[in-house]
């Protein structure tokens, strides 16, 4: 490993110095303020087309989710007994939608969309969630400005320990207070996958 001047080399001197182009090429992470978003743009209607051909098979034409694949749109309340969490009601930043689609979608061919295409499907997904209008065009300027309903729905400082169990050793509970609130015995959800698992479940 040969390097330029001495101050450019660390104590060990192993490895190489990546070129600016190399760093740029892998720096795909986007931040809430838009840092990391590339040039380009895409509209809701462009996104609708791409989504129909590349995304809808799993996520449904309107983001409703096929089978067990994730729903991309939801307006259920987060206080519901079984909230459906999706971009509209849960995600704090629109930039994260761009970042995630860009790096991980479409699922079978991740990171295969052009920046314009990612802008377009991001616009479409935001529109599905009623977060932007039908004429919205996503780009590095507009995306960070999208108002996300759950922006302040996160506690960013770990409040634990929030439980305060004590290491009681005897007479810790009144026997009559203890009853079984639920049991997996008859739930019938335990998969066997393959080969014997236990002696409890039917083979």
């Amino acid at each position: 490993v040969s390097k330029g001047e001495d101050e450019l080399v660390g104590h060990y001197g192993y490895g190489a110095v990546p070129t600016a182009q190399q760093i740029e090429g892998w720096s795909i992470a986007v931040q809430p303020d838009g840092t990391g978003l590339p040039p380009g743009h895409g509209s809701v209607s462009q996104g609708a087309d791409i989504f129909a051909s590349q995304c809808a098979a799993c996520h449904g034409t309107f983001g409703e989710g096929e089978g067990r694949y994730p729903k991309l749109a939801s307006d259920s309340k987060l206080t519901d007994e079984h909230p459906v969490k999706a971009v509209g009601n849960f995600w704090p930043y629109a930039t994260t939608v761009w970042d995630y689609i860009n790096r991980a979608m479409p699922f079978p061919a991740p990171h295969s969309l052009s920046p314009d295409e990612v802008y377009a499907v991001t616009a479409y997904v935001l529109n599905l969630n009623n977060l932007v209008g039908d004429d919205f065009v996503a780009d590095r300027t507009t995306l960070p400005k999208v108002v996300m309903p759950n922006r302040f729905g996160f506690i960013l400082r770990d409040p634990r320990p929030d439980t305060h169990d004590v290491a009681c050793m005897s007479d810790c509970r009144k026997p009559s207070d203890i009853h079984i609130t639920s049991s997996a015995e008859h739930v019938g959800l335990t998969p066997r996958t393959t080969g014997p698992l236990d002696e409890m479940e039917p083979k």
């Binding site: 992470a29 931040q31 969490k85 849960f90 930043y93 970042d99 996160f154």
Partner: peptide
Amino acid sequence: TQPWFTREETAQYTESMPDGMARAFTWAIY
């Protein structure tokens, strides 16, 4: 200087509380 707020640390790996708020950055295994 700042966290990236990636999908895995916002939409996933956060815990929804009864009041609808979600805890994020709850990294340690207790």
